[in-house]
Simulated assay, not measured.
Amino acid sequence: MSSPSADLAVVGGGQLARMMQQAAVGLGIHIRLLAEGPDVSAAQVIPDHRVGDHTSLDDLRDLAAGVPVITFDHEHVPPEHLRALEAEGHACRPGPHALLFAQDKGAMRARLDELGVPCPRHASVSSLADLEAFGFPAVVKTTRGGYDGKGVWFVHSAADAEEALSSDRELIAEELVDFRRELSALVARRPSGDTVAWPVVESRQVDGVCKEVVAPAPDLDDHLAQEAEAIARTIASALDVTGVLAVELFETSDGRLLVNELAMRPHNTGHWTIDGAATSQFENHLRAVLDRPLGPAGPRAPWSVMVNILGGSVDDLEAQLSVVLDAVADIRVHLYGKSVKAGRKVGHVTAVGDDLDDAQARARRAADLFEKGTTHE
């Protein structure tokens, strides 16, 4: 039995695709999904899914058959496959010409340098001599494939560099930035160039994993907020990004902004928009890639706090849900349908309100209850 015609094909079955489906239902958009397995997060909620490999052109062609537009839960589809799909009449959004700069940190840094976008000092390295010439301390990253702290090494001496240099991966070294905090600027862009931007947020990391996001970033100087938004809009336009673009930034201790990473898809630092913004990042991503008018991106409340639920001592999150809802008033919960593993992102909670301290306390308490079954209070 053939699947009904779909409006949009999504590659990758993680929580981002799952939350795209949440937005798609309201818009009447039919998504067809390529999932890594039959029970992954997005496959649980998207009926029209097939199991396959995003590195297989045959599987991608099967997914795309009869579907005009393709988008992504992750940035790891080989660019040559995307070019083949484009040649066969499918619109890949974002396209391979844009995704390159989210897939390859070396290419990203070179292009941002050309655009005059502020970045940390950086250089390609392949040997200890290269690293010593660059100077310690440094952050060494694989140019491809790293995420959530994986493929990243903090190198303070030659002894620290051994693992990175023996990884047999292409590497880039970046200066160890003295930053005050991390920020994120999100925009959504249509093929026409029409763009909307959400408020710039502060993100807080634990062991290289995003743990908490506050929207808008507290006490952010107006001119820095405007600069961060302008940087995101410039990159989206210059790289011809269609869909959501997340620009992760350092706010340095001396008041500058430096671009850290790019993501060309809905992003963890935008999850607060589901409950805290006039239009979520997921809805505007769908609108953008299908070339439909974008929704307003302003906040619904003065403050939104999103805290990721990381795998901890609580095994049954669904059973724990009643405990959390009973204990924490006015909290929004999003569970991803994943098995619990230590440190794994298995959901998030969001609190919105007029008082930042109150919203932060509610969100943190709910996340603690999901992770530990108790709180620090």
Rank of each mutant, 00 (worst) to 15 (best):
H122Q: 07
G373S: 11
L34T: 08
V241Q: 05
S280Q: 06
D104K: 07
D291P: 02
F136V: 05
T350I: 11
V140M: 12
E212N: 00
P302W: 14
G149N: 08
D73H: 05
E170A: 14
D178R: 15
A217P: 03
R181S: 02
A185D: 03
A64W: 01
E174R: 08
Q21N: 15
R121L: 07
D254W: 11
A225K: 12
L249Q: 01
S192L: 10
D148R: 00
R18P: 03
L57I: 15
E88K: 10
A215Y: 09
L258V: 00
Q320A: 15
S253C: 13
L82C: 00
A23Q: 06
V307L: 09
D354Y: 03
E212R: 15
L249R: 02
D130G: 07
A329T: 13
V139S: 02
D39I: 01
K372T: 14
V196Q: 10
V140N: 11
S3Q: 13
D48T: 12
G373V: 11
E202N: 06
A236T: 05
R61L: 10
V125H: 08
F72Q: 00
V324P: 04
D48G: 06
V155W: 12
V213H: 04
L224E: 10
K150E: 03
R265H: 06
R169F: 01
E132T: 15
V333N: 04
D316T: 04
D222S: 15
R265P: 00
R121S: 12
L294E: 11
R332M: 00
V155D: 09
P68W: 13
G243K: 05
A43D: 08
I70Y: 02
A102T: 10
E261I: 02
K150D: 02
A64P: 01
A359F: 11
L224G: 09
L100R: 15
V209M: 07
D168G: 14
A238T: 03
G37F: 13
D275S: 13
L262G: 02
F282I: 05
T71H: 02
A161Q: 12
H81T: 02
P199T: 10
G66K: 10
A327H: 12
V323W: 08
T234N: 09
A9W: 10
L369H: 09
T234D: 08
A301V: 04
G14L: 09
A107G: 04
R93D: 00
S126M: 00
L220T: 09
D194K: 14
E80F: 12
L220I: 12
L325R: 14
L63Y: 09
E182N: 02
Q360Y: 12
L60M: 09
Q320N: 15
P94G: 00
I172H: 02
L115D: 09
M19R: 07
S2L: 06
V346Q: 01
P47A: 15
P266W: 12
E86I: 03
S157E: 08
A351H: 11
H74V: 02
M19G: 02
I29E: 05
D62Y: 07
A9P: 06
L369M: 09
E75Y: 07
H54K: 04
S3L: 14
A42G: 06
P96G: 01
W303G: 03
